[in-house]
């Protein structure tokens, strides 16, 4: 008897048990809600339906994933020659998986749109667990598909043991590596749609106009003449962008950039006569840079060492930032 046909003898005796286990797993998060019901009545069940459209725009990958599972399931794992009841159970599991995936995405979106830990405090649903469950579902569904298709609920028979002996070890090792590789590839491929779709959001967010300090760079570009000297803040935590010469040089290029630290080390008057700088408050510490003492005609570019000057003129006043021309 051919080996493949041997398996057709076994039937799914416990198919309803599988279904019951699956639904138990699926609705397990509801226990969290029950727990909070016992302790206190939920008062903040807001109308959630307003946000349903924003899911599509915010995280399409989570929408795409269940559909991919659906397609793969329908094409590759559908039990074509199985019993009718098997087919029905298969369809029920697929549909319920789809619904649960979508609903968890919806809940996640609600969490994102409100404050952190919002869902847990109002409904008792731990969102972190739900998200990991969402990922775990994929593997579980594939496993159940395989179970239904192969219908193996009985332990190994003597014939299969014989068959295992018949196989030579080279082939066996080949197949073990292949199984490892397939699972690795599946892991990799599943994470990719998320990466790609999320990337665009992250990228635009991070590099939006090069951050808030880009305003000062633009002001310098517009008001300082080319082929002149520009003094920048010393490289400290307060000025992450403006003190980074390499970034600022890209925009101010023909102008020579001088670090605030450099001025304390050298005698400035010998090297350059005039220079420009922007005065403003740091976004992080609200500390102004540089410290200017108009009475003594002294300026502090590195907060410590005073440097005397002859003349200080305001070139441009942009409200939060002032651009000065200094003559040493």
């Amino acid at each position: 008897m051919p080996f493949a046909r041997l398996y057709d003898r076994y039937h799914v005796y416990y198919r309803y048990l599988v279904l019951a286990a699956w639904f138990f797993y699926l609705f397990s998060p509801l226990f969290f809600v029950l727990r909070i019901f016992i302790h206190s009545y939920p008062e903040n069940f807001l109308p959630f339906y307003k946000e349903i459209f924003s899911i599509v725009t915010n995280n399409p990958s989570y929408i795409a994933l269940p559909f991919i599972i659906l397609f793969i399931g329908m094409i590759y794992f559908y039990p074509k020659h199985g019993a009718n009841k098997d087919k029905i159970i298969f369809k029920i599991i697929l549909l319920s998986a789809l619904i649960s995936q979508l609903s968890i995405t919806y809940l996640e979106n609600i969490e994102l749109s409100h404050y952190p830990n919002y869902l847990f405090s109002t409904t008792g649903l731990p969102i972190d667990i739900l998200i990991t469950k969402n990922k775990l579902d994929v593997y579980l569904i594939i496993f159940i598909f395989l179970l239904i298709k192969t219908r193996q609920f009985k332990h190994l028979s003597s014939r299969t043991k014989k068959y295992l002996v018949q196989i030579n070890w080279l082939n066996y090792s080949q197949i073990v590596t292949a199984i490892i590789i397939i699972s690795g590839l599946a892991l990799h491929l599943i994470t990719i749609p998320k990466e790609i779709f999320y990337f665009r959001q992250d990228y635009n967010y991070k590099n939006r106009n090069y951050g808030s300090e880009y305003f000062y760079i633009q002001a310098l570009v517009n008001s300082v003449p080319k082929y002149s000297n520009v003094i920048l803040p010393p490289k400290v935590y307060d000025w992450p962008l403006l003190s980074n010469h390499l970034v600022v040089r890209y925009f101010l290029f023909p102008r020579t950039l001088i670090s605030g630290n450099y001025l304390k080390l050298n005698i400035t008057r010998k090297q350059f006569n005039t220079a420009y700088f922007v005065e403003s408050n740091s976004f992080r510490t609200q500390q102004p840079w540089p410290k200017i003492n108009n009475q003594d005609k002294v300026i502090f570019f590195d907060y410590k060492d005073p440097i005397s000057y002859q003349q200080l003129d305001t070139i441009a006043d942009l409200g939060t930032a002032k651009i000065y021309k200094i003559i040493f």
């Binding site: 179970l147 609920f153 190994l156 299969t160 080949q174 292949a178 590839l185």
Partner: peptide, 28 residues
């Protein structure tokens, strides 16, 4: 390399039976 391996794996035609036996082992 992985795809070359997968191709040879699929050509051996033993993979279906192997998946079945592997699942059986896991269940037991």
């Amino acid at each position: 390399l992985v795809f070359t391996s997968l191709k040879t794996f699929c050509q051996t035609h033993h993979w279906k039976t192997f998946v079945k036996t592997a699942i059986k082992i896991i269940i037991t």
